[in-house]
C-alpha cells in the first residue's frame, strides 16, 4: 500500500475516533450520577441552612454546585404529581416554612414516608443553591448506615 494511502486511512480512523469521542463523551456526556457520587461535604442540616441563611457568600459558594450529605430530622414530606420532597424546616417566612428542600430521586419516592419524620436520617444530593428562602438539594437519595 502506498504511503499516502496509509496516511489517509490513519487520519480517517483518528478523525472518526475523535468524532465518536466528542459525540459520546462531550456533546452527549451523561449527567453526573449523584446517587453514586462521593459527597464533597458531610454536614448537619442545620449547619448547612445556617451557612446560607446567614448570608456568608464565601460559604455559599463552597456548597453550591457540590454533592452534599446532610443529616438531621426532617419535619415534613411533600408529594406532588412528579416530585417527592423531604423538608427540613428551620424558619418561617413569606413562602411558608423555610429550610432545606430535598427533591428525591424517583426510585426513593416509595421509601419516603411519614415514618422518617422526626428521626435522624442522612440524605445525599446535589446542592443547587439558596433561593433566599430554602436551600435546594436535588436528585437526593437516603443513605443507610
Amino acid at each position: 500500500m502506498k504511503n499516502w494511502i496509509k496516511v489517509f486511512v490513519l487520519a480517517a480512523v483518528v478523525g472518526i475516533g475523535v468524532l465518536i469521542y466528542v459525540w459520546f463523551f462531550i456533546y452527549n456526556k451523561p449527567h453526573m450520577n449523584i446517587e453514586k457520587a462521593t459527597p464533597d461535604y458531610i454536614i448537619s442540616a442545620s449547619e448547612c441552612y445556617d451557612h446560607y441563611a446567614n448570608g456568608n457568600n464565601n460559604e455559599t459558594l463552597n456548597y453550591t454546585g457540590k454533592v452534599l450529605q446532610i443529616y438531621g430530622s426532617p419535619s415534613s414530606i411533600e408529594k406532588t404529581d412528579s416530585l417527592t420532597v423531604v423538608v427540613f424546616t428551620f424558619s418561617t417566612g413569606m413562602f411558608g416554612d423555610e429550610g432545606i428542600r430535598c427533591t428525591m430521586l424517583p426510585s426513593y419516592s416509595n421509601e419516603v414516608s411519614n415514618s422518617i419524620l422526626s428521626k435522624e436520617i442522612s440524605i445525599k444530593g446535589y446542592c443547587s443553591g439558596y433561593n433566599e428562602t430554602d436551600v435546594i438539594l436535588e436528585q437526593c437519595s437516603i443513605i443507610k448506615n
Binding site: 456526556k29 453550591t64 454546585g65 443547587s128 443553591g129 433561593n131 435546594i136 436535588e138
Partner: peptide
C-alpha cells in the same frame, strides 16, 4: 433558582 433548571444534555 437558575441552577435548578434541568436540561436533557449535561
Amino acid at each position: 433558582l437558575m441552577k435548578s433548571f434541568v436540561f436533557e444534555k449535561a
